[in-house]
């Protein structure tokens, strides 16, 4: 794999490399007073807290190179999990660096009000991510119900050949996907009212549902039960998976600092 390049968003940081001696890997921002995570961070570095203006940032020495390795992704996630277990947290995206500790502290000072407000918004909440993938378990019903599919199937039986089979299979795959998408919309319609906020992610032909829900921790059980009911209800069309509770990745403002502030 190629060495990572860096992108700076301000003139001062452009060209900073990941191996700058003072650079810090930033995991997230929490209210001051949390315990430093015991889990080692990215590249096995110990995680420490930098405190300023009632806030603290969890950081570790930036590794010489950052790559999206499984163990580093897991370390990022584990550090955030441990912090989120203690209270509200603004998780950073993977691979965010601060060029120097003083730059980080000054940022916390400048942004304190805005960051504290965001912490309040996710206080007592968790993120649950629900994904749904296409299941063709009901395709037999679909072929029987859908006049066009059924006729195509019978025609293909009378004159079976490779092309006809591909056409038939493709038509069934389209039908199965359409049903799964419909089920995904229903699932979303049932789950969204249980959440404080909902954020939809990208979908494709296989994964037709990808949504994050911001839930009050006390509603998590009820939410999971609702997912169970939906999963049974549409299990032959859509396979649901639930991940969480997660740090609220999807419910923090990605760029909290208005330019020139």
């Amino acid at each position: 794999m190629t060495a990572p390049t860096t992108t700076g968003t301000t003139a001062g940081t452009t060209g900073t490399t990941a191996s700058a001696p003072e650079a810090l890997y930033v995991y997230g921002i929490a209210p001051a007073g949390v315990r430093a995570p015991r889990f080692p961070g990215v590249d096995g570095a110990p995680v420490r807290l930098l405190t300023e203006s009632g806030l603290c940032a969890a950081v570790s020495a930036a590794p010489a190179r950052i790559r999206p390795r499984r163990r580093d992704l897991l370390a990022h996630q584990a550090v955030l999990d441990e912090l989120a277990g203690q209270g509200p947290l603004l998780p950073m995206r993977f691979a965010v660096l601060s060029p120097r500790p003083d730059a980080l502290l000054s940022q916390l000072r400048t942004d304190a009000a805005h960051l504290s407000r965001q912490l309040d918004e996710v206080r007592g909440c968790v993120e649950l991510n629900v994904k749904g993938t296409v299941v063709p378990g009901h395709f037999a019903d679909l072929v029987r119900r859908d006049e066009n599919l059924r006729n195509l199937a019978l025609r293909t039986r009378r004159r079976p050949d490779y092309e006809a089979n591909v056409r038939l299979g493709e038509a069934i795959a389209r039908g199965v996907r359409r049903e799964a998408r419909r089920a995904a919309r229903e699932v979303l319609g049932h789950l969204a009212p249980l959440a404080v906020r909902t954020m939809q992610g990208a979908t494709d032909d296989e994964q037709v549902l990808s949504a994050s829900f911001l839930l009050r921790s006390t509603d998590e059980r009820r939410f999971r039960q609702a997912v169970d009911v939906r999963a049974r209800d549409c299990g032959d069309r859509l396979a649901l998976s639930v991940t969480g509770p997660l740090p609220c990745y999807s419910f923090v403002d990605p760029r909290p600092t208005p330019a020139g502030r």
Binding site: P4, T9, R67, P91, M92, A95, V96, M199, P256, T257
Partner: peptide
Amino acid sequence: LILDRGMVIDVFVRVSLV
């Protein structure tokens, strides 16, 4: 979520991941 969501602060650097 880990790669595309979460906070990015302007004066920080996001390493682009090849």
